[in-house]
C-alpha cells in the first residue's frame, strides 16, 4: 500500500500578494521553514512527498523554483509540487484537492509546515502529540488538544480548547485515503473545518487513532515571536 506525505502550504491572505509567507522565508541556514518542517522525518517511509501551493502564490513569488532549489539542496528527490488553481476554504479541503489532483492512493501523512518534530510514523490512523508542559514558551490559544486513554488510544480531539496536556503537534496520519475522502465530503464547503473535525467524526464511528508521541518539537511561529 503506497504511503505518501502531504505538506499543505496553500493558505491565502491578501498580504501574501505583497510579501512572502513566513514558511517560505529562508533562515540563516538557507532553508525555508516549510522544508525544515519535514527534515526530521524519515523520507524512506514515503513513496511520494507532495508540497501543495496556490497558483496565485506561484505567479507572485515563483514558489516552484524556490522550492525545487530547496529540494535539490537537501537531496529530496521524491518531492513534487502540486499547484491548486484556487484557494480552499480549509486545510482538509486542501488535502482533498491534493489527493484528487495528484491521484494519490493508499495512506497519507499530513505535515503542517510551521513546526518540526521527531517521531515514529506508521501508515495507520494517528495524530502526533506533544505534552504542553515540555514547552518553555507556549501560546495555548493556537493549539488543538488531544485526549488519550490509558492504553494510548485517542479518545478526543478538539480545536483551541484545553482538554488534555497533549496538544496536536502538526502531524496527522490517515490509513485509508478513500475513507478520508468520504468523511471530507460530508463537510465539503463548510468554513472553519479542521482535520480535527474529520478525526473526531471518525472516532465517533469507532475508527481508532493512535497518538504518535513527538520528541524535539519546535514551533517555528513561537520562535519568530520570541
Amino acid at each position: 500500500m503506497p504511503f505518501n506525505l502531504i505538506v499543505p502550504i496553500a493558505s491565502y491572505k491578501s498580504e501574501y500578494l505583497h510579501s512572502l509567507p513566513a514558511v517560505f522565508i529562508k533562515g540563516e541556514d538557507g532553508l525555508m521553514p516549510c522544508i525544515k518542517a519535514v527534515l526530521s522525518l524519515d523520507f524512506t517511509l514515503f513513496d511520494h512527498i507532495f508540497f501543495t501551493i496556490l497558483r496565485i502564490m506561484e505567479e507572485k513569488h515563483h514558489l516552484c523554483a524556490l522550492l525545487k532549489e530547496q529540494f535539490h539542496e537537501i537531496g529530496l528527490a521524491k518531492a513534487e509540487i502540486i499547484i491548486l488553481d484556487n484557494p480552499t476554504l480549509s486545510q482538509p479541503e486542501t488535502i482533498y484537492q491534493t489527493i484528487l489532483q495528484a491521484n494519490i492512493k493508499g495512506s497519507i501523512f499530513i505535515k503542517d509546515a510551521d513546526c518540526s518534530f521527531c517521531g515514529e510514523i506508521l501508515p495507520q490512523n494517528g495524530v502526533v502529540i506533544y505534552p504542553l508542559e515540555s514547552l518553555k514558551w507556549v501560546n495555548p490559544q493556537n493549539k488543538s488538544y488531544v485526549a488519550v486513554d490509558d492504553h494510548f488510544y485517542v479518545t478526543n480531539i478538539i480545536e483551541k480548547k484545553i482538554i488534555s496536556h497533549y496538544f496536536l503537534a502538526g502531524g496527522y496520519c490517515f490509513e485509508d485515503l478513500d475513507l478520508y475522502c468520504r468523511y471530507y465530503q460530508r463537510f465539503a464547503g463548510q468554513k472553519g473545518l479542521y482535520l480535527s473535525h474529520i478525526i473526531y467524526s471518525m472516532l465517533l464511528d469507532k475508527y481508532s487513532f493512535r497518538p504518535i508521541l513527538a520528541t524535539e518539537y519546535t514551533d517555528f511561529e513561537t520562535l519568530v515571536q520570541l
Binding site: 480545536e159 472553519g192 473545518l193 473526531y200 467524526s201 465517533l204 464511528d205
Partner: peptide
C-alpha cells in the same frame, strides 16, 4: 460554540 463539532455530535 463550534457549530461543526456540534453538528458532528448531533448527527451521530
Amino acid at each position: 460554540y463550534d457549530p461543526i463539532r456540534l453538528g458532528i455530535i448531533c448527527q451521530k
